[in-house]
Structure formats: C-alpha cells, structure tokens
Amino acid sequence: MRVGLFVTCLVDAMRPRIGFASLRLLEAAGCQVVVPENQTCCGQPGYNSGDRETAKTLALKLLDEFETCDYVVAPSGSCAGMIRVHYPDLFRDDPTVLNRISLLAQRTYELADFLVNVVKFDAAPGHFAGTLTYHDSCSGLRELGIRDQPRALLATMPGVTVKEMAEATTCCGFGGAFAVKFGELSTRMADNKCRHIEAAGVDAIVAGDLGCLLNIEGRLRRRGNHTTQVLHIAEVLAGNEGDD
C-alpha cells in the first residue's frame, strides 16, 4: 500500500518531528510511505480567506503530486478536511477535474483516522507515561468525524490515562488568519481552553492539529503555565526519536 504523506506547511516549518513521527507510525503499520518533495500547502489559507483561485491552483498542484498514491495521509484534520471535503467543492463546475479530485479526496485521511479505520493499527510504539487530555480540533471533528479514533489509539498505550476536559469539542480560537485579525477574541477563546485543560489536571494536552497546539501552547505559557506539555497525537503515539 503506497501512502503519500502530506506533511502540511505548518509541520514542515514549525515542528518537523510531527512529520517524522507520522512517517514512523505509517511505516510501523506496514505502509510504503512516499513524501513528494515539492509539496507545499493545501491552499486552505486562501480558500478560507475568499481567494478561491489560489486555492484551486494549489489543489491542482497537490493532485499532481499525490495522484499516484493509494492514499494521502496528513497529520492534520484541518488539511485532510480541506482535501476531502472542500477540494470537490472547488471544482464543482469543472467536470473534467472534479472526477479526479473526488477520487483523491476519497482516498485522503487524517492520520489517526487512517491508522484506526484503514490499516487497523493498534501497536503504538510511543512510551508516554502520564495523564493527558485530548482537544477535538474543529475540522477533524465536524468535517471528518474524528473523535473516537485518537482516543482508541491512546487507549492501547499502557502508560497513558486519558482524562476528558470540559468543552473538549469547543474551538480553541485558532482559525488561521482569525488568530491575528481578531487577536483579542482568539486569545479569549484560547484562554477558555487553557482553563479547561488546567482544570483537568493533566500532564499533557494532545490534539491532532498543529495550529491548535501552537495557539494553546502560546496561551498556556503566557498564562504562566510552563509545565503542561503540548503534544501532537503523532508524537505521543510514535514517541520522539531524536527528531529534534
């Protein structure tokens, strides 16, 4: 099974170790992983800002790079949701591309969803020991139905105890450009999230999207919380092996 890893622009720039953790997990699950080297961005920033044309161009670029893969996997519900749900919408009036793009969309998965539902993986090699709480990122949850998958994977790890926090499914306030354009509002939303995380009394907050994690970590630290770890689900599942 040939799986194309879409690293995502945020992971590429900010936290490459999440990309490597994803790679290790996919390989541990028996996939042949390819990482198209020219990949950049799925086009979501443009799409959500009203720049449909740029989004279309980037969608076509991604299609060319990944079309030969059996599956496309991304360590992000947001980017996977963009491809799976919104790419077909971008080409709704263009039947020649629509067919190809829809086929690609159907083969695109968020990492935890892919591990649980496609390859039935249950041997996470990570060695995290402690309590954690999972934040349900919006696109993953509401566009792709990702809720049980990460929790199921975490449940297979003997050292991990998952404690649910209040309002786990409420947006953390990231929202891409929203976080800068409406900074105060976004900060308040992040702060609410941080309060719930702290009330849960856990060692780590885990999510499947780096955007949310940067937002949450940024607010936690500004609040003076320097102890709660902020981790991507791939890092917890795969463990860190000198990717830093």
Partner: peptide
C-alpha cells in the same frame, strides 16, 4: 502579528524544516 502576541506567545520553530531534515 501583534494580534497573536499581545495575548499569547508563539512557540518558536524547531529550526530546520521537515523537507531539509528529510533530504
């Protein structure tokens, strides 16, 4: 990006990009 940093820190990038490390 003061909209971000007025109320939050921004975790710094790891240093090298994924594509560099992968290559």
């Amino acid at each position: 990006a003061s909209g971000w940093t007025a109320g939050r820190d921004m975790p710094a990038p790891q240093g090298k990009t994924f594509r560099e490390l992968y290559r």
